[in-house]
Simulated assay, not measured.
Amino acid sequence: MDIGSILAEIKRGTAEIIDFERIESLIKNFYEKGEKFFIKAGFDPTAPDLHLGHTVVLNKMALLQKHGAIVQFLIGDFTAQIGDPTGKSATRKKLDADTVAKNAQTYKNQVFKILDPEKTEVMFNSKWLNELGAAGIVELTSTFAVARMLERDDFEKRYKAGSSISISEFLYPLLQGYDSVAMKCDIEMGGTDQKFNLLMGRTLQRIYGVGKEQAVVMMPLLEGLDGVNKMSKSLNNYIGVEDSANDMFAKTLSISDELMWRWYELLSVKSLIEINELKDGVKDGKIHPKAVKEALALEITERYHGKEAALSAKAEFDKIHSAGGLPDEMSEYELGAPVWIVAALSHCELSASNSQARRDIKANSVSINQEKITDEQLYLEAGEYVLQVGKRKFAKLKVK
């Protein structure tokens, strides 16, 4: 086994690695001595759905599972009731226990689309944090000074702005660091926005005499469909892990050629050599960028839905966009005549609101029976219509 190639793949796409020498030693020990090692990644179950941005870290863990890692997938059911203050300008609301439990189960169902369940331990930090008790928490707080805590960028900004910072929020990074003590992990992974919390694990492992200090691997935040902002459900620039195969394929094809290479680096299982060959082919004009993007869309869709569904999604996309056809399946709605087109678009969930429907019409994005319309005062009489907004949104409307 070429250790150098493995280490190059581990480095691929990372934003920062602290103590890479330790990771190199762990990989070598696995291949020379058969010793396995533990990787921690924590997810607070504050939302029930994962998107491709979340999978950047999961993909790297799945790679390491092939080279000796046991993933400790930590669901922060205890810390979720505090709420991670990272990047927040205000104190977060606490989640109730039932919501945490429900969201945790949803996460478990989704992560095994990426991680090997045979090499994954799902853990809940309530197990040891509940046992820590008042005395243990007081001892934990004595390990870190308030001045150091206020060096954290988001706390510093809120303090200077006179915004509220609760004592429980100071506890959050300490509790996340204590997770690393309890789990005795060798590596912790997270996004670049988690650096302060990730380093806390190294500090506390040393203070509590665990006998090791975890290496830290930080992954960049994946840009969303717009190619500018990080992937986020609130910005509606995301692809959800549980999106339909048709949506997943079509959305991937909508990204720019420039963003495509970024996604290849962070989301594809193709090797760096294979990706560079594709880049050279596009640069030399031997391969069309669209073909490369289609290959990426197929790979991502197949990962979450299987090969047959991915090929079907491609065929559906080609039918609609290349041949000018209509999708085989569309949501169906009924309304009484006459129907104002703006209200129809909103009712059929093609536009988020009447205001958005007006904007869609003005942008020349709306079609009825595959013919563009520009009149926002149009009323539909009795009949059956196929409404379309943009390239991907379709609905059948029966007006009685």
Rank of each mutant, 00 (worst) to 15 (best):
E188S: 03
K212W: 00
G177K: 04
S234K: 12
D243W: 02
E188N: 12
Q205D: 05
E223I: 12
T252V: 14
S232F: 14
Y208G: 02
I239Y: 11
K212Q: 14
E258R: 12
C185K: 07
V210K: 04
A250N: 07
N197P: 06
P220C: 08
D243Y: 01
Q194W: 05
F249R: 11
N236D: 15
Y238L: 03
C185W: 02
S232Q: 12
E188K: 02
M231F: 12
E169I: 04
M231W: 06
W263S: 07
G240L: 14
K195V: 01
I239A: 10
Y264N: 01
K233I: 07
A182E: 04
D193S: 10
Y172K: 07
T192W: 05
P173C: 11
L259D: 04
S244I: 08
N236H: 15
M218D: 00
V216E: 00
D247Y: 13
A245R: 09
L225A: 03
I239E: 10
G191K: 12
E258G: 00
M260T: 15
N237E: 10
S168F: 13
G240Q: 10
I167G: 00
L171R: 05
I165T: 10
A215P: 13
K251Y: 13
S234L: 09
G190Y: 06
K230L: 06
L253H: 11
L175V: 06
V181K: 01
W263Y: 15
R206M: 01
Y238V: 07
W263T: 00
E169S: 04
Q176P: 10
I255P: 09
K230Q: 01
M231D: 06
Q205W: 02
D247F: 13
D257A: 10
G190M: 09
M189L: 15
E213H: 00
D193F: 03
Q194C: 00
L235G: 01
S164H: 14
K212P: 00
K233V: 09
M183W: 02
L221H: 05
F170M: 11
G209V: 03
M219I: 00
G211Q: 02
Q205I: 06
A245S: 15
E258Q: 12
S164D: 15
T203F: 04
N236Q: 15
N229L: 04
K212H: 13
E188P: 00
D179P: 04
M200Y: 07
F170A: 05
G177F: 06
I165W: 08
M200K: 03
D247Q: 15
L253K: 13
N246P: 04
D193K: 11
N229T: 06
M260V: 10
M183T: 03
V217P: 03
Y178M: 05
A250W: 05
